[in-house]
Design a protein around this nucleic acid. Sequence first.
RNA 1: GGCCCGUUCGUCUAGGGGUUAGGACAUCUCCCUUUCACGGAGGAAACACGAGUUCGAUUCUCGUACGGGCUACCA
Length: 512
Amino acid sequence: MQRRIRTRFAPSPTGPLHMGGVRTALYAWLFAKKNAGDFLLRIEDTDQNRFVPGAEQYIIDALHWCGITIDEGVSVGGTHTPYRQSERKEIYRSYAMQLVESGNAYYAFDTAHQLEQQRKNAEEKKETFSYGSATRMKLNNSLALSVDEVKELLSKNVAYAIRLKIPENETITFTDLIRGVVSFDSNLVDDKVLLKSDGMPTYHLAHIVDDYLMEITHAIRGEEWLPSAPAHILIYRYLGLTAQMPHYAHLPLLLKPDGKGKLSKRDGDRLGFPVFPLEWKDPSTGEVSSGYRESGYYPEAFVNMLAMLGWNPGTAQEIFNMNELIAAFSLDHVHKAGARFDLEKTKWYNTQWMLRQPNEAIAKRIKPMVATRTGISADDVRLSDNYLTACVALLKPRVQFEKEMPEKGIYLFKAPSEFDQTVISKKWKTEFISFFKMLSDEFMTLQDWSSQLAEQTFKTTAEKNNIKPGEVLQLFRVFVSGQAQGVDLFPMIQLLGKDEVIKRLETALKFV
RNA sequence: GGCCCGUUCGUCUAGGGGUUAGGACAUCUCCCUUUCACGGAGGAAACACGAGUUCGAUUCUCGUACGGGCUACCA
């Protein structure tokens, strides 16, 4: 019988989730949804030293913002509670003891200091210390010590860790869903700690116990876990759970755009772009890191961009909403090599998504920004839905982010107080004054007011003055908007209204 | 250093024994627009290198180089 597909995202609450983590979550979620399965959120808080308050909530909020829904997990509950590893502490011990009893794990009494010494000694000999088959019999553990010695240490409550006993001379092979067959020489795998001396499990033990108990079918995680995969395979084997072992898929890493290395939390804003989905304020330092949300990105654009970084649909389609991503997603179209993050393309995705937003919706969202920027009162027509929607239509092709609109189109809300001097000094001739005065008068006499009518009037007035429209058009724009460039001129004239245009024109003429 | 993974335009990528090696972002040119954008058309731009297999390798194999990851009682 085919098991129900279940994937999980299992972050450690050591700070805000960065975009690489979001991508891992996204792929795991897409895979689950594609296969009509479940997606779980489990919190791996087994390292008490690295716990950061607020991080767990941040993770939940970030996933929510991205539209990644959680079927089971820390925020929503489920049939496999609890979903926070610190609350499952006792469960792991019994599995660790089972491994000790079957001879596949052992007590290690070495102190942190002793291990540090070992590393230092090895380093002096230009070697690397590894706690494994080659060294374990010379160390302070239940394999090297006599039964009585071990008993005594245990009875005296001497702190110990439990380590996995990696076999000698074995090739450990498994099939990764993305990379195919991968194999390792067991002699090069170290005896990983399973249970720490504080009683908490390490990732290695905890994720396996939980994946098993939570009936995870596909463990999708970053490539940084590939080197410890052989130890994980062995743990499943020694626990007699090989049949229940999930399929592993190791995702390529997200790389820094500038050069070297994987994208990390610590990159913060150093590279000139957010690495986090949402803004984060460090609770201890108060330092604020920017987020995509606060920078004006749509979650759809952010998710779309992440999905395409390392995965492709096999078609030329680039813009995907969530449902389309689910329909198109497949692990075998995940690229093997790491993907370098590209800010320009990310902005392009946002622009594409902005172009697809209804004007009315954007109008509603920019309304408060326009109000604060201009100080115009709430009942002013320029803050009406109709007026703002018309502004959005005009501004849309000229910005990448909707939040740019209030500033970019400031002249749609406020008469200019300054005029682009470059245009004026280049184009202005004193004899134009009569043209603009006549234009103002002609406008005044118009019964109707429209883009076409204004344009027609502009042209005929120019002709009457023996002026080519092109000579004064740019000046007209500057007089009305203050700026040399902007939205389509006559539609803007129509939108501003006859009285406003005349008023602006007259004000401007006093300046030249 | 050791182990593992990887390598197609600047970037994200498609492709895969015989192709004019395709698309997107960015870039350049032109058109549209009497502005700036949007849009449209076009250009430049890539199979890391060396062997082997083969009639034929960018594609398969091996090696080298380069890149990345891991090498904690962190995840």
